[in-house]
Design a binder for these strands. Sequence first.
DNA 1: GCAGGGGTCTTGACCGGTTCAGCGACACAG
DNA 2: CTGTGTCGCTGAACCGGTCAAGACCCCTGC
Lengths: 338, 338
Amino acid sequence: MTEDLSPQAAGRRVGIADVAARAGVSLGTASKALNGRGNLREETRARVRAAAEELGFAPNTIARSLLSGRTFTVGVITTDSYGRFSIPVMRGAEDSLAAGEMIAFLCDSRDDPIREQHHLRKLLERRVDGIIVAGRRTDARRPLGHDLPVPVVYAFAPSSDPHDCNVVSDERGAARLAAEHLVKTGRRRIAHITGPHSHASARERADGMIEALAGHGLDLVGEPFFGNWTEAWGRFAAAQLLRAHPDVDGIFCGNDVVARGVTDGLREAGIALPMQVGVVGVDNWDLVAEAARPPLTTVDLGLEEIGRRAAELLLAAIDGHPEPGHHVVAGHLVVRES
Amino acid sequence: MTEDLSPQAAGRRVGIADVAARAGVSLGTASKALNGRGNLREETRARVRAAAEELGFAPNTIARSLLSGRTFTVGVITTDSYGRFSIPVMRGAEDSLAAGEMIAFLCDSRDDPIREQHHLRKLLERRVDGIIVAGRRTDARRPLGHDLPVPVVYAFAPSSDPHDCNVVSDERGAARLAAEHLVKTGRRRIAHITGPHSHASARERADGMIEALAGHGLDLVGEPFFGNWTEAWGRFAAAQLLRAHPDVDGIFCGNDVVARGVTDGLREAGIALPMQVGVVGVDNWDLVAEAARPPLTTVDLGLEEIGRRAAELLLAAIDGHPEPGHHVVAGHLVVRES
DNA sequence: GCAGGGGTCTTGACCGGTTCAGCGACACAG
DNA sequence: CTGTGTCGCTGAACCGGTCAAGACCCCTGC
């Protein structure tokens, strides 16, 4: 009978007023009891908590946000459609955000500035506490906007404004890790096959490689082979390289896809891997690295860590402690058989 | 001077009260003017709009939600970490949601029921209007919960409760498309190499294949080769198949990764592709399908379409028009060279 | 001249919580 | 017996919008 008067039966969702009524206290007291604030008798607190439990009370975050001005939400804008790079970044970010009881809105801008501005607007209307921008290329990008009312952190793809907060991978460091591994495994005649020269990551990895080899008194064999990020290019370039420099004994590839093409090209040219030539890639994209023959040794850029750091920096900025500038996340070598 | 009194200078964000003051109307009038409601002179409406424009007014969705009870947000819970399957589904869902002016919260449950319940709770606290559950396997999964206060749609991975709203791929249809293509291109001795028997998708595609071939008066060559979803298995199974049935002239593979392994295995055994043997995969995972030699002909399961449909059904359910049951999305064949 | 009516705008309640001033009761000191 | 302080709770304002009810003005018709 009295069931008919219960909020659930009435189709309404149970609110703090229901909890207060059930516990026989005022609305304000119920609020304090549930949030551990104010001076209340422990017995009252327990009674309110029990009532909340019995009614299955879930606080309405919306109402709370209205007053506090904080929503405990952030927006994540990805420029590539949740591709190879933004996904691990997002996963890492979600990790850190969850630790701060925050949750992320996902927006895919598909590299379209109009779409991006539209999403930005929607996010601001929803009063997100902050925004993470994740890109798929390491080239600097136009900032999201000026004088935004919330902090922004750029992950992987940095903003062209150095005063923004950017979390980036250590491109030269990745090349250095690869160089060190190749040298340590006895390689001395090392070449480089990579993606398009128009990509900052391709250029930086190449420069880093040359620099690192120089540190060991070595020169790169030939010029870096710039091409594109495909297996076909890797196969083609490997064949060319062998023709020009049959004595090559190590190859650093700009990414795993190219590296896989290179291993196939070498194997089909009758080269025994890893005995005659050592190959190192970049990305640690397990699908590619583990399917290659032999499985690829590769540099993991630490994308998840980039996401985590970005979220941590965003949380700090939201709390009033911004740390603008470039934050470089180190990668690490994953040794497999190549 | 008066600038110092502006809301921006005061660090506050501009609210509808600021717009109303600037336009010289009351708060309620400003609201009506901006939302196109009520009876107002066109001149007043224009004046308010102009004021809003000048101040860069962005309505506070939070306040609006509090009264209306709708947040125009949905939760997307993915069981795999934004992997191969949930990503296109999410992209499709975002498409449809954006059309309804909605935005998605992203939660990754990592196949952990505890995590999933935690996310569910957080989403309900945030008063999402609905929830999409996206999984990576076609096997039925335990429902998210009972008597949830918001509608739920399951995408790709259906709920085990048939009264739930599920959007699923057409597994048997995929096999039929593959069979038809192989038969149409003159293949008659067709085999099947696929993933683990424990996966519903592997079983259904195998059954669908046998059924479709029977429709053409053909039998499958040998038993289906159940294994796992790896290239290595594809290569191995291809070699075995050739030994047992050297006269095979068509192979339907359970997915693209296996198909790629199969093409490599066949090529290395000296088989000319696609002249001697035709190969068809499933997934249309461009990275794999295009890198294979020759590029794979494959069935696209229409994952984006599944995401779109799921979001549309969710929006309908939110509007009070639920359509429970199984909604099957057809795939399509993508013809490449294999 | 005044009632009636339509068009235009204002006022105030409301959504569901949080927070703070204040109030009653009781203990204790003077 | 009164003044003061503390404890535990209540009541109301508030966040930023929306919306229904009503106030006001001007025009029309009798």
